[in-house]
Simulated assay, not measured.
Amino acid sequence: MSTVIGVLRKRFLAPSLASVGFAERGFPVTHTDATARLEAVPQAVVCGFEWAIEGAPLWEIERRLALVEPEQRGFAYEGATMGYTILDAMPGGGRDRTRALLEGPGRPHIFLTYIGIGFAMARLPRPLWKNILPELTGVTYHPVMSWLAVDGYGFDRAYFDTDKWVGEQADPVPYPWAGRPEYFGRAFDQGVGRALWFINGGNSDAVAEAVGRFPEARRADLWSGVGLAATFAGGSDQSGLARLRHAAGEHYDQLALGVVFAVKARTYAGYVPAHTHLAAGVLTDLAVGQLQAISDRTEAVGDDGGPLPRYELWRAAIRAEFRPHAQRAAS
């Protein structure tokens, strides 16, 4: 049940549904049924955020999120995680809401709940980031996949401050996430790549042009984000996906990496929509089950003791599965 303080928090902190829409943000998107489904993603995030920022107890959040259709439910969990993370970071918060959410009903959506933490990072001063990631017990992929929080931060900045992060292609100030400030910019760009898919309404040609305007050194991580968004969120038909695959060129292995991570997140959550099956087939020539198997057999590669975080070692092992295709595309 909402309190007066909770209602006030929602009023001042929660964006309106219109404010996250493509037209309100000034994105060059033509309204179609496909773009409407894509636009529903940030709106689902807002709904989850509104419920959480009011301070609703976990049992109530879980029941509300269960009412969201399965295709969008993970995005609503992103928003709820964002709200709980902000509450936990507030003075006097200290109720460990985020940990309870991620260890409880949010566990199947762990890939997306990390992203929700990143959305909260975009609204909190950096000194508060030090303790923003909860210590989780018994949660698979923690803390390896916590780099998705930085991905979420990059997505948020590109989506809501597009002129700076996409138009001017600004570089983020490094932060020692997981003790590795040198990797922060790469994870950030993976989120920017995801945002480019939404900013351009799933238009493969426009997305490829947007990636191409970035410096060459940043394009690989951008392409992996594009592949993840196109597969997880949808928004394109078979023809558009085929053009996207062709446009990736030498970065095809990065695009395919994004597809694999999207499939992993969808299968782990227990719901794989038709557009994910379509993207898997068109972008990789493989079925969802085959891509899940690639993810599973590569996840144990390496450890965090080397020059790269285990997250990136996993990504590199997946890319290696598709590198011959990338080499053929570049030739």
Rank of each mutant, 00 (worst) to 15 (best):
S204A: 15
D156M: 14
E168H: 12
P215L: 01
W177L: 09
W223C: 02
G225M: 09
R219T: 06
F184D: 06
A210W: 09
F214W: 05
F155P: 09
R194K: 15
R157F: 09
V207Y: 00
Y153R: 05
V207Q: 05
M145R: 06
A170F: 15
Q169H: 09
W177S: 03
V192S: 08
A206V: 03
G167T: 12
N203K: 02
Y159P: 06
F184S: 05
M145W: 13
V211H: 01
F160Q: 13
D163C: 12
E168M: 13
Y175G: 04
Y175T: 03
R180M: 02
E216H: 11
P215Q: 05
P176D: 08
D163W: 15
Y183R: 01
A170V: 13
V211E: 04
R213W: 12
L148W: 05
R194S: 13
D205A: 14
E182L: 06
G227Q: 00
S239T: 10
F198S: 12
Y159T: 05
L222C: 06
S146G: 01
F160I: 13
R213M: 12
W197N: 08
L241R: 03
R180A: 05
F155D: 09
G212R: 01
K164E: 14
R218C: 08
S204F: 04
D163E: 15
G152I: 13
P174M: 13
F188W: 15
G227R: 01
A206Q: 14
P174A: 09
A242R: 10
D171G: 04
G225H: 13
D171I: 07
E168I: 00
Y159F: 15
F214P: 02
G152F: 14
D171W: 13
G152D: 11
V226L: 02
F198N: 12
P176W: 06
A195P: 13
N203Q: 02
W147P: 02
P215M: 05
S204V: 03
W197A: 11
R180S: 06
A149S: 15
D161N: 09
A149K: 10
E209F: 01
A233W: 11
L241N: 08
P181M: 10
D156H: 15
N203W: 03
A210K: 02
D161L: 09
V192P: 04
F198A: 09
A195W: 10
V150P: 02
E209D: 14
S239K: 08
W223F: 01
F160T: 15
F232H: 15
P181K: 10
G212T: 01
A220V: 00
G152W: 13
A195T: 11
R186K: 03
P174F: 13
R157P: 08
G201P: 02
D156E: 14
N200R: 06
G212L: 07
A178M: 13
P172C: 10
G167I: 14
G225F: 12
N203C: 00
A229L: 14
F184M: 03
G234P: 05
F214K: 03
G185V: 07
W197L: 03
A208D: 00
D151C: 06
L148C: 07
G201Y: 08
T162R: 14
P172M: 11
P215D: 04
G191E: 03
D171N: 07
G227T: 02
D161S: 15
V150S: 04
W147K: 01
L241M: 05
G167H: 12
V173A: 08
F232S: 14
D151M: 01
M145D: 12
V192E: 08
A187Y: 04
G179C: 09
G234L: 11
V150Q: 07
R157I: 04
A210N: 10
G179E: 10
